[in-house]
């Protein structure tokens, strides 16, 4: 007799709402990984998410736990308040690069400096997705966007900002890593990193951020598969993956 077991099913922490993300956008993968981690840790009921402004502005519709919406870039400040008032809850922000690395740069840096015990999921897709593909602080040198049609000129607009490296220099940070979502191996690694980022918070080890290299097929004007290839070939050399800061207490943690 042959029996069947379920190897994979939609995580409980995601609602049945269909996302508004474009086909092939890895925002969905990041959502799924967060949801899977919350399910595995059994902390869905006590988790409060903070949604940003950007493509992931409707994240509160997609996650099956409490969510609040912050003003543009202010998610870390809002998460700070929530975590200080309700330290028993798990608090995380989910932010894109326009939100976190541009308008919200001060908030994220100071949240890390204060060593706030929150988790940050940072989606780096090198572009402003929601508003139509303008240049972001993370846009690669020479990359064409709607506001840099000839390619990003670093003489004029500066260089791409490397958030993980930058925040890893701050003493209050407990766990700062960069992962990518361009193939199954790296998606698995990203999930482990997200798990560790939430474990950092559960153990009170300080500020945790996972930077995820993500794709934007629509605004990069290529197919979803080509977008994943773009991450691998063009983004990885500029944004090397790695553990930039890991609290000594997390070093031996197996997840």
């Amino acid at each position: 007799m042959v029996m069947e077991k379920v190897v994979y099913q939609r995580p409980e922490s995601l609602t049945d709402t269909v996302t508004h993300y474009c086909p092939g956008c890895t925002h969905g993968v990041a959502h799924r990984l967060v949801a899977e981690v919350l399910d595995e840790m059994g902390i869905r009921e006590k988790t409060i998410g903070v949604a940003p402004v950007g493509c992931s502005v409707f994240a509160y519709n997609y996650f099956n736990h409490d969510y609040v919406e912050a003003a543009h870039g202010r998610a870390p400040a809002m998460a700070t308040g929530i975590k200080r008032v309700r330290p028993q809850n798990t608090v995380y922000t989910y932010q894109g690069d326009g939100d976190l690395a541009s308008i919200g740069m001060a908030e994220i840096v100071h949240a890390a400096i204060r060593g706030e015990n929150i988790t940050v999921i940072f989606i780096n897709n090198a572009i402003y997705g929601m508003t139509g593909g303008q240049m972001a602080p993370t846009t690669l040198a020479g990359m064409k966007t709607t506001s840099s049609p000839l390619g990003r000129d670093v003489e004029l607009t500066g260089y791409p900002v490397k958030m993980a490296e930058m925040l890893s220099t701050i003493d209050g940070a407990g766990y700062i890593v960069r992962r990518s979502l361009h193939n199954p191996v790296n998606i698995r690694k990203a999930k482990k990193a997200i798990r560790k980022a939430f474990e950092t918070q559960e153990r009170g080890l300080g500020f945790a951020m996972v930077e995820l290299l993500s794709s934007c097929p629509t605004n990069w004007k290529i197919t979803p598969q080509e977008a994943l290839d773009f991450i691998e070939n063009s983004m990885l050399p500029v944004y090397p993956l790695g553990d930039y800061k890991v609290h000594p207490e997390l070093a031996g943690l197996r997840v």
């Binding site: 994979y8 995580p11 995601l14 969905g28 949801a35």
Partner: peptide, 9 residues
């Protein structure tokens, strides 16, 4: 694992 919309069981 690669599905962005968790559509596959």
């Amino acid at each position: 694992i690669v599905c962005p919309d968790a559509a596959i069981t």
